[in-house]
Design a protein around this nucleic acid. Structure first.
Lengths: 118, 118
DNA sequence: CAGCATCCGATCTGATACTG
DNA sequence: CAGTATCAGATCGGATGCTG
């Protein structure tokens, strides 16, 4: 989701931040604690590295996450949620619980139990 | 956002429901009360009718909104949030308040006042 | 009024290969 | 390990005109 400079509606702004396919999952992972690129990659299945890096950069632009990198080898990056990111995570968090409720409606409690979400 | 049949993660499911460009605004409008197609069209600026109808249909598939139509002429449609829709609206609602907080950080309180959001 | 069909450009996403 | 480059395919979104 490319960053527009100005928004006429707060809702749109937040929406654009989260719209990318993998954004919520990335934020979800980072909410557990700071994390390197490779750790994120491992944690999130099915996502190409290109998308991961691209989404991370967009989140950086939005100042939703922050980043530090070590100088030496092997390189080591650290991504983490900013205060703003924690705010946005509230929305992500609700998305998760709403999703769980919908799955319950659809009689998928077994699935949720497997995942330890119930 | 095309509907996938199965999700491995509740978060993804909710995300797909809201991802479409105009979905949050549509839900926002409907949260104020049920509404006809033309009323939605008027309320939401900049959106083509095609996208409006398409997004409404997707929301219907997800059972996030419901719909009734009158028989006679002129035709009259009514779209409204379902219980599930009200749940999802909680997420939308937080997206709005997070957006407001971000705009405050960016010193846009004048703008927010104009819109009556402050 | 409500909604569908079509055409087309913009954007997003993914696979693969390569650099510091 | 962290990240870039490139290319192709999928999807999304918008404009316009038509139907019941």
């Amino acid at each position: 989701m490319k960053m527009r400079s100005d928004y006429n509606c707060p809702l749109e702004m937040t929406h654009d931040i989260i719209r990318g396919k993998w954004k919520p999952v990335i934020l979800w992972e980072l909410s557990k604690g700071e994390c390197s690129l490779s750790a994120l990659k491992k944690a999130i299945g099915g996502m190409s590295q290109k998308m991961l890096v691209q989404h991370l950069n967009e989140l950086l632009e939005w100042r939703v996450i922050g980043k530090t990198v070590s100088d030496g080898y092997p390189l080591k990056s650290n991504y983490f949620l900013t205060d703003r990111g924690e705010k946005i995570f509230e929305a992500v968090s609700i998305m998760q619980s709403v999703g769980i409720e919908m799955m319950l409606e659809d009689n998928r409690e077994e699935f949720l139990k497997e995942k330890g979400l119930l």
